[in-house]
Design a protein around this nucleic acid. Structure first.
Lengths: 232, 232
DNA sequence: CTAATCTCTTGACAATTATCAAGTGAACTT
DNA sequence: AAGTTCACTTGATAATTGTCAAGAGATTAG
């Protein structure tokens, strides 16, 4: 593992506060891999021998059943993923593939479990990270259960406008078919929903979205802190 | 807090391995409450000052948005709930109400966070419990995203037949409208789905379900370890 | 440059799911 | 015992969502 990779992940909340010696034990035997786009990293059901940290690129976590597939989450740098499977030493519930050229740091799961017992700061950070992930999935579940697809889309657009600094126009961060899958709908349905949102002040051209007036969209979306705010 | 309550929760995996002194610090200032059925315990958005442990009865965790409501989980004894909110010191994402007369042990959240830092066995148990909860929500999310309502119902029935020891006939563990809400469907829809399952060997009379032949139902439900097995 | 591939869009249609209204039967209240 | 309430069921209908097919436009490979 190169010095630059070590530095990069060291600043993550999950590693930031731990002792240097514990961090060294954690990344002993770790390695880094670079993948081209559209590569499968692992498949659901496999054993999770490494905690993964994405340092560059984009990774999709998806699940399959009966020839159906759904996007569970998009991982963006710099963040860890698969913490729960690592802790439990249990098989992955999701599969993963790169969407862009990606760089992944792999920390042996055994190290994670060992150092968890030895370093309090790390233990605290791990449990906080896990609690945050848990709350993230619960929010996503509420989103799917309580809202129709057009309501989910409206909230998605508002969130990404905020992330884009509130600019009237911004680019969608993903292919539309991935957005559709993430929102639990078909690409056809997404296409039609975007047209319908024209009546609510949303203009769409390719990957570009323009929201001329947030008012109508907000009245439709009714964003709620306990569903849409990632920090609460 | 009475001696019997202390014993009861002490045997939970989350408390079983910790030192006696740590356990004592944990339940200092704890108390126990008994609630009649249909009582609201707390509402989403409120601060989580206590880790809850249900020792008797049944509690529903539900979420609301825009006058809609959905059941997120049914808590059965003996188990803890609200661990993630406790750890993060963050507001509840769900509301809770009793479905039966229930007994709840309340452990101050501050104690949980403090003892987490002091007792390794407890820290390990907390993180494992949280990881298990996380994986539970992910499975539930896969269930909702990848399956139609009748497929979810078919899997639900098969699971409860197993829990009932595999007997041909067994009683539903909840009111049908709660089952409907848990499965993300309306009561009307559940009623019709149960009729449809008649073609798959399911007989229903009130709270009683009889599955004369699991074959057809299994072919419809296609249960998967990574969605339906709570232990994997 | 051309052909092939792929995403996105649109239309027609089908399946799924929800809503509204009414009726039945059981449990509970007075 | 009679009345009330409530869960559940059923029918009719509407809304939502998915499927299939075809075509436009962009990108990529040769």
């Amino acid at each position: 593992m190169r010095e630059s990779d070590i530095c990069e992940i060291r600043n993550l909340p999950i590693f930031a506060d731990m002792a240097e010696s514990a961090f060294a034990r954690l990344h002993r035997g770790a390695y880094v891999q670079t993948f081209p786009p559209q590569v499968d990293l692992f498949h659901e059901g496999e054993a999770s021998d490494f905690l993964h940290v994405l340092t560059a690129g984009q990774v999709e976590l998806f699940a399959t059943w009966n020839r159906r597939e759904t996007t569970m989450e998009i991982v963006t740098p710099v963040s860890s993923f698969l913490l729960a499977a690592t802790i439990q030493d249990a098989p992955f519930l999701c599969s993963a593939r790169t969407l862009e050229k990606s760089r992944v740091v792999l920390l042996p799961s055994e190290n994670v479990r060992d150092v968890f017992d030895e370093d309090r700061a790390f233990a605290r950070a791990v449990v906080r990270e896990l609690a945050a992930s848990y709350r993230g999935v619960v929010k996503s579940s509420k989103n799917i259960r309580l809202r129709s697809s057009i309501e989910r889309l409206a909230n998605y657009l508002l969130r990404y406008q905020d992330l884009a600094g509130g600019a009237e126009s911004f680019a969608l961060p993903l292919e539309k078919r991935k957005i559709a899958s993430l929102l639990g709908m078909t690409p056809e349905n997404l296409s039609r929903a975007l047209r319908t949102l024209g009546e609510y002040g949303v203009q769409n051209d390719g990957q570009s979205i323009t929201i001329c007036d947030r008012g109508p969209l907000l009245r439709l979306a009714k964003p709620a802190r306990l569903i849409d705010d990632p920090s609460s």
